[in-house]
Design a protein around this nucleic acid. Structure first.
Lengths: 299, 299
DNA sequence: CTGAAAGCGCTTACAG
DNA sequence: CTGAAAGCGCTTACAG
């Protein structure tokens, strides 16, 4: 079939029996109450983690016959609110959400209305909604323990702010809990929208201080550290670095960066499966909080 | 307004005068013939270039009140055909397409039906449809000239296959045209779906051969070279490398990689503006082929 | 100026 | 078993 033939269908007795007839999905959706469209809201699709997550979601959704409407919040809660109401008024069948809200109350209404919602990457405490996350706290602990095993005595933590994001605060807790000397914690909070400058400033402050290891709360922090060190790395030759998120770059840079790898493909795939499972079985659905394991990649 | 209040609206006299009433977009679309939805089809959203392009498209579309349905083809022409017909049957108002087709005939039907279509990144010869690309040939020339200026005597070219993709073939032409010794061209074609192995094999073949510079046709090739060199870089110490696409990684790796930077944000923004311009002025629309300049970034 | 009706393209329940 | 009608939620053109 050439694409010509599928442009601007109009139903007629002849056409409805035509082999390649594809019904207008909006009319169908209006009538039937389903649109086979899934909304996806993430902070930033150009962040490699969310790019890969969306790819995984898209592949599974395509297999199951769903299209995706993808939007970015850039961590802006106001935009997130608007996007959620936009998407719902576009009659999405369900929503996969990596939320930037600081409070679960913003989406309490979705829960109360039994709107099909899957939280990914980020979740809320005491909030009985489907979610797929990784064991962030344990992953961060593993990272700090690895630093100690590698000879590090005084590890510091670089985190982005805002820190109310569940994945971030869990990683910070993991770092704090794994410290040998609990009252010697050192935490640098880097604003998420100005990472490069913030990291450079933190490194300048750290220069010649008594520390020998860095735990990075995500790949953006680690990349900014690499960039800063590439420009002015003296004094940091013996610092050991580990980062949450495993990205390709870590294979090709100096200094070597170890990482805590997340099962992104599985997370995306499971999010779609969980959602479709809920479509098929709307009554007896019990929200599940799936927590997946991370893998330490030593370099 | 809490999100509760926008869930599952149902129209009534009271509600239609309600302040925060948002009409069902599908019913509206069905009636009015517009859905304020733009389809976006790219090869792979997890490729940083397309990730950034989609981000730019999304930002501009959001400002103008449009949602995006984003899909990936993974260079699969069959999937691309299905996606195009899917999206059209979902009544998208227009399509922004980075096509993997080897032949313009696949979308000739869209053109003939005056379906609002904007080609980005990749286009077709003698095809009078709106498009936004960069001057790939000139960019590749600039790259090769830079290699010569840097002292390179014998540059080789690493390209991905399939090479019928317009941006790729234009870059190859630019490389070939800029060679001082035209009959000494050396081209390595790396299959797009197996880049790392292909690049490693090509480098193994090149080892100890008489060459001293590489022009990479895109960032994926350059990253694979970096990875290969990180594993086994001996014998390549004095090779000068330049790549199409400027990516953050190039700031933080050794060897230094210069690049030909594309104005991704502007391309995405212009694609949306061109499309909306066409919506607003469907009659007098004359297809434009916009070609943007690249910038050489020396490292 | 206001309000009821028609119709966008479908699917489902119903009548013949 | 087949075919016409109703209705999903809107907007627009029309009647009052």
């Amino acid at each position: 079939m050439n694409v010509v033939s599928i442009v601007r269908h109009r139903k007629s007795k002849a056409q409805s029996k035509e082999l390649n007839y594809i019904p207008n999905q909006y009319a169908r959706g209006l009538r039937i109450g389903r649109t086979n469209t899934i909304g996806v809201i993430v902070p930033d699709i150009s962040n490699i983690f969310y790019g890969k997550l969306c790819k995984a979601i898209e592949q599974e959704a395509y297999l199951k016959g769903y299209n995706l409407i993808i939007s970015n919040t850039y961590e802006d809660a106001q935009k997130e609110k608007k996007l959620i109401s936009d998407l719902i008024n576009r009659n999405i069948d369900g929503l996969i959400l990596a939320s930037s809200f600081d409070d679960k109350n913003e989406i309490e209404g979705l829960r109360q209305n039994d709107f099909p919602l899957i939280l990914v990457d980020r979740t809320f405490e005491n909030f009985n909604v489907d979610s797929i996350t990784v064991s962030n706290k344990e992953g961060a602990s593993k990272a700090v323990e690895f630093l100690y095993r590698s000879g590090v005595k005084k590890p510091v933590c670089f985190t982005i702010s805002p820190v109310y994001i569940s994945s971030i605060s869990d990683r910070i807790q993991g770092y704090l809990g794994a410290l040998k000397n609990q009252h010697d914690a050192k935490l640098f909070q880097i604003p998420h929208n100005n990472i490069e400058e913030g990291v450079a400033a933190a490194l300048a402050e750290l220069k010649h201080q008594d520390f020998d290891g860095i735990f990075c709360v995500n790949n953006n922090i680690a990349k900014a550290i690499l960039k800063s060190l590439a420009i002015n790395g003296e004094g940091f030759e013996n610092i050991k670095i580990i980062s949450f998120d495993d990205i390709e770059v870590f294979d090709i840079v100096h200094p070597k960066i170890s990482s805590i790898s997340q099962p992104i493909e599985e997370m995306g795939k499971k999010a779609v499966m969980l959602l479709i499972d809920r479509f098929d079985n709307p009554e007896g659905h019990q929200p599940q909080q799936i927590v997946m394991d991370t893998v330490l990649i030593e370099r």
